[in-house]
Design a protein around this nucleic acid. Structure first.
Lengths: 352, 352
DNA sequence: ATGAAAGCGCTAACAG
DNA sequence: CTGTTAGCGCTTTCAT
């Protein structure tokens, strides 16, 4: 317990208490060599006794590290998600993976919103960097492939990780295998006996959209199923585009028996239209979602979905950046994190 | 555009560029008086030209402010929510309200997890305070009423805001009127014609649980409806406790026609049991949720719910703390933020 | 293995 | 109104 100090405990107090120099305390606190075990012990006792915790700001000022990892998310998309409360837990999963990975290593993750589309991206990113001077930056889609941001980070020699990117030309790329995931989803439906499987593509602004569509095509091709016109519908990740795509499928001459949506919102939009038109899921139509979010799990029926490893990807990103800041060399290149397919009640064999 | 500076732009560069002293630049940047408009103009131009943004760490070191607001959440509860992905968007709403309010004022909100139950609460909080030295702390339930934390904050003279607390003895209390919300929910059901209305209470660890139950009782009493034994069921906010409560209601001799659950998870648990037992909602049973989360909006049927103003409460907390740090006196006491009742398909008149 | 000195970028307190 | 001086709490570099 002890009295709560009004004025914070500094390294100076610890040095006095332990009868050593500031430098020795610093060494002990930072686990550096060249301190006799005996002295180290004494300092650690003083630290514990006084409840000393180094000041982040002072560390940043004196040293070359800030113990900060900056995570950049798209402002519009994030705020819209918060406002509409559509139940995507992207941010939560990101915090989960990132914050804990940082905390384990004595780091802190700071979360910031940046406007991708604005002409001021550079200014915004620069402001965040100047103010915080983080040891690394985590980029999420669509920032992960924004050339303006990438160039700026490279120019500043700021280490960064790109979640959901497969561009290994700069920074760490951390992704799941979107193509394989789309393949797995498609194979799952093929395995159930489906032949006419629709695929609602995502916004082309995101690279992974193409990879997913390719995976779908590959899986279809692998078993010799034709991809006739109209089987692949365009979408932009939104609920509305999912609705539109579903209407297109239902208005086909020969309707599909299963649909894969490249996003949770599009899957829900599709489900909504199916319900409205009296199409039973999964009786008449199987549905698979990309993104395994809370709403997908609680929908009726619960949706079969590709689980994106958002927390593990963010954790990996934080680890790589912190290791880099700590001087440990990490394998560069693309880091692929495993995905999962959560099979739920929305997918079933087609009606004989 | 311009070249990206490897080495960051400091106040010194700006001073040189504008031909003034460091202090003058500082005054301009901080909007302080005693600078001739002409000089101010010149400095601002230099700032813009060089893309100068003050270093957070240096500001903290030199001055008395850190431009940081620390938001403390319960570790176990938060992590569990992230792991289970049950779709509560508490954290998101908190970030939404808090981050934006901070950003508008040149502040940053830092989000941290603290273990309420641990014997080390004090140490954990102290560590966060020592490391960050924030200008204010936002407490969320159950921290808002944790004496160990409150005492520590008071002893350190650290300004703080308590979300969901009605204890005005220290810090700012910011809450919605839980009693009035429960009353409104109850009155809504009474208005529909219900007489036997069940209420699933929340964990007693949270003060607001009592307030909600009281509101329910008041509304019932106001129209002379008796609160017979078993009408109020205990709960702990969990899905399972909602299920248990619902089973208790259905096993009544004379079942209830409507139920209010003190949390979203309990409402969903209740809905689940009702569906299993073949009880139609809202045909045979009306259901109202506290907490208007994504899952509640996407459930079948969508649930009538009390919307807790989490984002506005957090924004208010941030504002009050920043104002306090800026020397502006704020009205102390309890700040009550309006709630809303979102009427959806889960509530309807009882079967004649 | 340890300590002393210098300085990080800024603001507070004071001097003009 | 403007500039000068002294730190803030740490880490770096260099000496011992």
């Amino acid at each position: 317990m002890g009295r709560s100090p009004r004025q914070s405990v500094t390294i100076r107090h610890v040095a006095a208490e332990a009868g050593v120099s500031l430098q020795t305390v610093s060494r002990v606190v930072n686990n550096e060599p060249n301190v006799r075990p005996q002295v180290r012990e004494r300092v650690m006792e003083a630290v514990k006794k006084l409840g000393y915790v180094p000041s982040l700001a002072a560390r940043r000022m004196g040293g070359s590290r800030s113990y900060l990892i900056l995570a950049l998310n798209d402002r519009d998309r994030t705020i819209e998600g918060w406002q509409l409360g559509q139940g995507s837990d992207w941010i939560d999963q990101m915090l989960y993976g990132g914050m804990l990975a940082c905390a384990e290593r004595g780091y802190r993750m700071i979360f910031e919103l940046i406007d991708t589309h604005s002409a001021h991206v550079e200014r915004e990113v620069n402001a965040a960097l100047s103010s915080l001077r983080p040891d690394g930056v985590i980029l999420t889609p669509p920032h992960s492939d924004n050339p303006a941001i990438i160039d700026l980070l490279v120019a500043q020699h700021m280490p960064f990780a790109r979640i959901g990117s497969d561009d290994a030309s700069a920074g760490f790329a951390i992704r799941m295998d979107d193509g394989a995931a789309a393949e797995a989803a498609t194979a799952h439906l093929i395995g159930l006996g489906h032949k006419r499987i629709g695929f609602i593509a995502g916004s082309e602004e995101y690279r992974l959209s193409g990879a997913r569509t390719d995976g779908y095509r590959a899986a279809m091709k692998a078993v010799g199923l034709p991809i006739v016109d109209g089987l692949v519908q365009p979408g932009d990740f939104s609920f509305e585009s999912g609705e539109a795509a579903m209407r297109a499928y239902l208005d086909f001459g020969e309707p599909v028996t299963a649909v894969i949506a490249s996003s949770e919102q599009m899957a829900l939009g599709a489900l909504h239209v199916a319900r409205d038109r009296g199409v039973d899921v999964p009786g008449e139509l199987s549905l698979v979602s990309f993104d395994d979010t809370p709403v997908v799990r609680f929908s009726v029926p619960p949706l079969t979905a590709i689980t994106q490893p958002i927390a593990p990807m963010t954790a990996k990103a934080a680890e790589l950046l912190i290791d880099a800041a700590s001087g440990k060399e990490s394998e560069p290149g693309v880091h692929v994190i495993p995905f999962a397919l959560a099979v739920r009640r929305s997918s079933a064999p087609p009606r004989g």
